[in-house]
Every structure is written in structure tokens, then in C-alpha cells.
Design a protein around this nucleic acid. Structure first.
Lengths: 342, 342
DNA sequence: AACGTTCCCGACATCGTTTGCGCAAATTAT
DNA sequence: ATAATTTGCGCAAACGATGTCGGGAACGTT
């Protein structure tokens, strides 16, 4: 388990380190025979180039940085899984940073990732982030950047997102078709791309079905603890309370389910509930929760692929684009009114 | 957002880099006035030492490596959360590696972590790992190592674990007290420390309550997909089938719940179910799931604290010990027979 | 006046690797 | 046979920071 350097190989073979280095990277100006010897020796000693030294030199560190709000979250942990799988296959390490939904920490994370000389950066923005100059700096330094899930329209980079509009549209339309008319939407910070897209899908479904969009039915969460209960209370005390809840995240869906049950509101008799979530136990809940599933792992995989493509073909600029992954509507009992009649 | 080096400060102040370096680390042999100037300049330029260069030099990299089987797992993602919180507070970065339950990958991860010159290593063993010489190598190189959750008795290092014996004992006793006599135990690979401890707790509870330990009621999972259904089928076709299931992990608990429901076995009328899990939606399941909760985040925190303590007080060897964090039994409807009578 | 101490600070080597340049030997062209 | 080219390889300088020397200036001591 000793760790050998290029020097060891050089000494072993009685040649210079430059020659070893060039031989290992297959330079044309090295004698094929020498190359063979070097390769053989490197193999024998189980030589692995020191990533630290490489990074310091400014060349590839074969590490990509991932900055996201929270690891302990169904969506993100699955996304990381996808990222890690691709990165591993293509020979990259993943260095993970959590912004904890803080703009401050996100900026610090970016700086640290840069000083660790990552070859590229994969990010999902914190909920506090509205200014993206720290990311523009990354781009200015020519470090590839791919955004996923929570993206910013102000940056001209590749983005990988779920079809938030389509998912929200489908969820809302499903609720309308099952007879709901007052559909509340619990969502997160309004300036986030995903919030806006989901809200737009929700609104479009309402309007295309001849229903009025009512701002009073929208609630914006802040990732605080136990914030869903009060929101539900407020909504249920409206003159015209909601008959359905459409939530925009894992946490909100679970919180809402909990709040509704605590208040003895029966689902789906009193109100329907549908979530935008990656909860893999959704069908084991009481009642089984209808959801719009976003393929978190796939989003992570595609984001990682795009990033590594960019890293490796730096010269030939790859097209900047927004990849939109379809979501899937899964109807379960929490929105299935007929089921109640059984 | 420019990034400055020690050279920039040296040039700015017309002094040498050595002086700047020493001034920054408060060496006694630098004129207080010079120190002040350097500090001030560093502050002004927002100087941050380059972690890569530090690592190369062999000194602290202020990064700790975390190697664990899977990120997308309730327990581990919460543990990472705890680790990251402590690491961040104490100025360390966290580099995460997933072994994907593979011994091969775990060894590769260890090598990579070492070549990235992490200051210390935090590990939970893959389910394939029985040989730990790769970790002994780490210790031989004087790199601090702390194991958590899945630990090995063959290594003389600090370990942080849940009270697996106590938790299993409590769960089993609870089942016995509620009238169960044939308690099946679904667990994971038998050579893992947590498996053995939980099994021992289960067995002790049985024997102290005058019940026979029956090997036929034990099933060992392998992290394969959909493996729980067949296990349940086998058990229910025994001459004397179980009247309760005690599962050793998140995945098994959820899988078991699903399997039992698919087979129309009513919980807890037909069989009770209790899990050893960190599922935070356990009380929203149908039925709400009794669990032994292990404080994943706390385990992560304590492990990180111990590791960083070891890193920073390398000289004075800290005591090696096994920290055992209490678990908590939470009884919900899945094991509450009386509740059925409502 | 000559010597020994302190006090500050700079030159240089170092970590592992890459890379520009140059140099000798081997090969080809004249 | 001499000149021009090619081939194969080594030297040394970087990357950013630290640490080992050692040296000059300003003291105090005989």
C-alpha cells in the first residue's frame, strides 16, 4: 500500500522525471521502448498520479464540486447519487458542499471549491440566492458550471431541470378533473426558478380550465420548522377555503399531510393533497400520496454528464442549453375521490 | 473576486514571502509592526491560503474524508448532515466518497482520500468489508480514523455507534410485552458489527423473557432489490409462522411494510412490525410505524468532533474509546395491539 | 574595540508534476 | 564527408506555501 511518485519510477529506471511524465501521458517524443518500460513499472508499483500536485500545477484535478442546499433531502440525496455514479465512471471525484440555504455559505462554498481547483462546478442554488455575481465570476475564470433544479435565468450556462411547468400543470389539471375548484398551492421562495415554473404551470392549468387564479390560495414557505400548520390554518379559515392542496416540495408535502391529519381534515374526503416530491414511501403513507415525481437521479446524471463533457472538450465550446426532464404524475388515494366510496 | 497569494502580499509590502507566511501564522520572530501590516494587507486583499498548496506541502489540508456505503439513505444522509455541521464550524471541508457497499470501491476510496491528503477519515464500512487491512494502513500512516455505525472490532480506533444492543433489546421486549411470541428478525449481513449487536439484543430479550431463540426466524438481507417479499413469504409458510417482525434497517422496514400489505397481512392484527430506522415519516405511514430511532445526526456530529480533536491534538494521543449513543423506542400503531380495538 | 546575543528578515529548497528549452546522438540530405 | 534534420531525453522553472538556514543590524558584554 506504499504510495509511489514519478520520482520513484524515474530512479527505478535510471531516467529523468520529465521522461517518465511524458511517457505516462504518451508524448510522441518518447521512445516506444522507454514508454513500455515506464508503463510496466508504473503498473508494477501501482502508481497513481498525485491529484494534489496536479491541481497545484493548474491542470486537471479530476474533481468536480457539487454545491447544493441540503444533503438530507430526498431529492438532493438522489441527485447526488446520480452525479456520483457518472463521476465515478468517468474518473472524477465529487466534493460536496452544503449551502444550508444560506447565500453567505454558498459564496464561501464557491470560493472554497475554486481554491480546491475543481475542474467544474455543479450547483443548485440556495433559497436565499438572488444575486449570482459569484457564479459569473466562476464563468469568467473559465471554470465549467452546470446548474440543476434550482437555476438562475441570469446565467448563460447549461441547466438541467425537471419539467416543473408540465408537472405542476398535470397535477393541477388532475385535481380539477377530480372535481376540485379551490386549489391551494404551498410553495417555496418566490424568486426561485422552480417556484416560478411550478406556479406558472398551476396557473395555466387553472386558467385553461376556466378557473380563476386566486393569489390568496398561494403560500410561500421559508424552510422554517413547523411552518406548514399555520399556513393550513390560515387557508382553511378563508371565506372560501381550499378543497385541495398542491405542494411544491418534499418537506411541504409531508408537513401538509401531517398538518391536515392533526386538524382532522380527512384526505381526500375534505381536501385532496398532491405533492411535488421524491419521497419513495409515498405509497405507504396514510393515505397513499399522489405525487408528481421528478427523476432526481436522472437529473443528477445528466447534469454530471454535461459538466464532464464541458470539462473534457473545453476547446470546442459545447452548446449551452436547458435540459428539461419529464416528470410523472402518479395518482394515489390522496386525490382519488372515487376510492372513498368503497 | 480575484484570488491573491502570499506573493501578492509580499510584493505589495516589499518584503519576502517567508516573512509574510510567518507573519500570518503569528511567528514570534516577526516584528509586531510588520505583522500588523501583513495582516492588514491580507485582510484587504481577502487573502485565503491555498489549500492545495498546503496539502502538497504535507501540512494540514483542512479536509476530512467521509467514506460511507450510500448517501441516498436516511441514516447516512442525516449523519453527513451532522458531520458537515461540525466540520464547517471548525473550519474543515468534507469530501464524501460512496463505497456503494462494495469492498473494491471502498479500498479505492481510501486510496483516493489518502492521495488527496485528507487530515482524517470518517468511515462506515461497506457491507462487503470483512478484511480491514486497508484501514490498518491508514493508521500506520498516522492518519486519524474514526469509525461510525458500521465498525470493525479488529481496529483499535475511536468508534461512534448507536446503542444497537439496547435498541434491539427494547424493541424485542416491547413486542414480547404486547403478547408476541414468534418474533422474526430481518437483518443485514451477519458479519457487520451492527448486525451482531442487534441480533444479540434481540436474543437477550427473548431469553430473559423465557422465549426460545429460533434461528429459523432470522433472515439476512443483502441490499438487493425486492428481497424482502420472498423472505416474508418463507417466514409465513413456516409451521409456526411469526407474529411480529423486527427489522434492522430503513430499507428493510419499508420493504417489509410494503410486503406485508401486499400480502394482505394486517398490521398489527396479524403481525406486529417495528423497525430500526431513521425514517422521519414513520408516523405518517399506514399504519404509523413503531421504531427504534438512532440519532443519526448526533452520531455524525460526535464522530466528526472526535476526529477533529484527534487531528488537532495529534501529539497528545487522545483516548481510544467506543462512544455508544442511546437509542429511543417510539411505539406507534404498528405494534400497539390495543389500538386495534378502537 | 572586539565579541557574543537578539531580533528580524530573506534566500533557497521542498512537496509531485508538467513543460519549454536545449543538447547530444542518430539519421538523413547534400 | 560535411551539414541539416530528427529523435530521445534531461535540466530547470514553475504552481503556492512552509521551513531551514544563515546573515545583517542593533544591542549588550568584556
Amino acid at each position: 500500500m506504499e504510495v509511489y511518485t514519478i520520482k520513484d519510477i524515474a530512479r527505478e529506471l535510471g531516467i529523468s522525471t520529465s521522461t517518465v511524465s511524458r511517457a505516462l501521458r504518451g508524448s510522441y517524443e518518447i521512445n516506444p521502448e522507454t514508454k513500455r518500460l515506464v508503463m510496466e513499472c508504473a503498473e508494477r508499483l501501482n502508481y497513481r498520479p498525485n491529484p494534489i500536485a496536479l491541481s497545484l500545477k493548474g491542470s486537471a484535478s479530476r474533481a468536480i464540486g457539487v454545491i447544493l442546499p441540503q444533503i438530507a433531502n430526498y431529492f438532493f440525496s438522489q441527485a447526488i447519487n446520480g452525479i456520483e455514479a457518472i463521476a465515478y465512471n468517468r474518473g472524477y471525484h465529487v466534493i460536496i458542499f452544503q449551502s444550508q440555504e444560506s447565500y453567505e455559505r454558498e459564496m464561501a462554498n464557491v470560493q472554497q471549491a475554486m481554491s480546491r481547483k475543481v475542474d467544474g462546478l455543479l450547483m443548485s442554488l440556495s433559497s436565499e440566492t438572488s444575486d449570482v455575481t459569484h457564479l459569473q465570476d466562476v464563468l469568467d475564470k473559465n471554470v465549467p458550471l452546470v446548474l440543476f433544479d434550482r437555476v438562475s435565468s441570469e446565467l448563460n450556462v447549461t441547466k438541467v431541470v425537471a419539467d416543473n411547468f408540465g408537472g405542476a400543470f398535470a397535477a393541477t389539471e388532475h385535481l380539477i378533473r377530480s372535481g376540485r375548484r379551490r386549489i391551494a398551492h404551498l410553495t417555496i421562495q418566490p424568486w426561485l426558478s422552480i417556484t416560478q415554473e411550478r406556479l406558472a404551470g398551476y396557473r395555466a392549468a387553472l386558467e385553461q380550465n376556466g378557473l380563476e387564479f386566486d393569489e390568496a390560495l398561494i403560500r410561500y414557505g421559508t424552510f422554517g420548522p413547523d411552518e406548514v400548520g399555520p399556513m393550513v390554518d390560515e387557508l382553511m379559515h378563508l371565506d372560501s377555503p381550499p378543497d385541495a392542496f398542491f405542494t411544491a416540495s418534499d418537506r411541504l408535502a409531508v408537513g401538509c399531510l401531517q398538518a391536515l391529519r392533526q386538524r382532522n381534515l380527512h384526505i381526500p374526503d375534505d381536501v385532496s393533497l398532491i405533492g411535488f416530491t421524491n419521497l419513495n414511501v409515498a405509497d405507504l403513507l396514510d393515505p397513499p400520496l399522489s405525487t408528481v415525481v421528478q427523476p432526481a437521479q436522472e437529473i443528477g446524471q445528466i447534469a454530471a454528464e454535461r459538466l464532464i463533457d464541458q470539462i473534457e472538450r473545453k476547446l470546442r465550446a459545447l452548446p449551452i442549453e436547458t435540459v428539461r426532464i419529464p416528470t410523472e404524475l402518479i395518482v394515489r388515494r390522496s386525490t382519488r375521490l372515487e376510492a372513498v366510496k368503497l
